[in-house]
C-alpha cells in the first residue's frame, strides 16, 4: 500500500468488491465443471441429483460409460501425451541451441534472425496450421512426383500436429532459455578453462547445469501448452484425435458428464505440474 495516498473509504470498499467479483468470475466456470462431474444425472445440468462417481468409474452394467471405461477418451489422452512429449523434446533442444546461437555467437544477420524468432508468436494459430498443412502436402506431392515416395508423415496426422505446435512453442522455449543464458557469469566458464577443463566438460558441468531450471521450466510450459493446444492442432489432425479436439467434437454434440470427469482430471494434472514448478522455484532460492 502506498501510505500517503488519499484513499477514501468508498474507494477501498469498491476495490474489495471489484476484486471479489473478479475472483468469482474467474472461478465460477471451473467450479461448475468440477461440480457436475459428480452429479448423478445423464447431462451436466441442474438440478443436483446426488453424488456419484459413475462418470469416472461407471461401465456398461450401469448404462453409463465413465472416463476410465471410455476407450475413445482414454486413447485421446494418450495421443495428447505422446504429442506433448515429442513437442517438449524438440522445443527444449532447439530452444537451447537457439539460446547459444543468439547469446554466444556473433554473425551477420543476427538481428534479423532474433526478430524472426519472435514472429511465430504473433501469427494466429489457425494460420500456422493451414500454412504448414498446405506446405507439407506440397512437399509430399513433390516427393511423390520426383522419387515416387509416399511421404505419409506429411499428410494430416500426428507428425504434422507435432510440427505445427513446435513451430511457435520453440519461440517460447528460446525466449526463456536465452533469458537465463544472458544472465550467466562468463567468468565461471573461464575459470574452468584456466583450470584445464575441455570445452565439452565445461558445457556439461557448468553451463548446462546452470541452464537446467530454465530448461525444466520451459519444458513444463511447452508441455502444458502443447497438451492444451487447439487451433493449430485442429487444422493438422488426422485419424487420431488429441484430447482437446475430441472434447470439442463431443461438446458440439452435447455430451454426458464424462467430459466433466476428464476436466477434473485435467485440473488435477495442471495443479500438480504448477505445484512441482513452484517447489522447484523455491528450492532454487
Amino acid at each position: 500500500m502506498i501510505p500517503s495516498l488519499p484513499r477514501p473509504l468508498w474507494l477501498r470498499v469498491a476495490t474489495i468488491v471489484f476484486v471479489a467479483a473478479f475472483l468469482v468470475f474467474l472461478f465460477l466456470p471451473l467450479v461448475t465443471v468440477a461440480a457436475f462431474a459428480f452429479n448423478d444425472a445423464a447431462y451436466p445440468a441442474p438440478p443436483w441429483q446426488g453424488f456419484t462417481l459413475d462418470w469416472f468409474t461407471g461401465d456398461e452394467s450401469k448404462g453409463r460409460t465413465g472416463l476410465f471405461k471410455d476407450e475413445e477418451l482414454m486413447g485421446s489422452i494418450l495421443t495428447s501425451l505422446l504429442v506433448a512429449a515429442w513437442v517438449t523434446l524438440l522445443s527444449v533442444v532447439v530452444g537451447t541451441t537457439n539460446a547459444f546461437l543468439m547469446e554466444r555467437m556473433r554473425f551477420r544477420g543476427q538481428g534479423l534472425l532474433s526478430l524472426l524468432m519472435l514472429v511465430p508468436l504473433v501469427i494466429p494459430g489457425v494460420i500456422l496450421g493451414i500454412s504448414i498443412l498446405a506446405f507439407a502436402s506440397r512437399v509430399a506431392d513433390l516427393l511423390g512426383d520426383i522419387f515416387g515416395w509416399e511421404a505419409e508423415f506429411l499428410r494430416p496426422g500426428l507428425p504434422l500436429v507435432v510440427l505445427g505446435q513446435v513451430s511457435y512453442l520453440i519461440a517460447i522455449s528460446t525466449l526463456t532459455i536465452s533469458a537465463r543464458l544472458k544472465r550467466f557469469d562468463r567468468t565461471l566458464e573461464e575459470a574452468a578453462y584456466n583450470l584445464g577443463a575441455s570445452r565439452p566438460a565445461v558445457l556439461a558441468t557448468i553451463t548446462l547445469p546452470y541452464l537446467r531450471p530454465a530448461m525444466i521450466g520451459s519444458a513444463a510450459i511447452v508441455f502444458l501448452m502443447s497438451f492444451e493446444n487447439f487451433n493449430t492442432t485442429l487444422m493438422l489432425v488426422g485419424a487420431d484425435s488429441p484430447l482437446t479436439v475430441m472434447m470439442y467434437g463431443r461438446m458440439r454434440d452435447g455430451a454426458t458428464p464424462v467430459l466433466n470427469a476428464v476436466s477434473v482430471f485435467l485440473m488435477v494434472a495442471s495443479a500438480a505440474i504448477a505445484l512441482l514448478l513452484m517447489r522447484g522455484d523455491n528450492g532454487r532460492r
Binding site: 465460477l28 466456470p29 471451473l30 467450479v31 461448475t32 465443471v33 451436466p44 497438451f227 492444451e228 487447439f230 484430447l243 482437446t244 472434447m247 470439442y248 461438446m251 467430459l259 466433466n260 476436466s263 485435467l266 485440473m267 495442471s270
Partner: peptide
C-alpha cells in the same frame, strides 16, 4: 486449465 474446460464451464 485448458480453454476447452473453461468453455465447457
Amino acid at each position: 486449465v485448458s480453454e476447452t474446460v473453461r468453455t465447457l464451464g
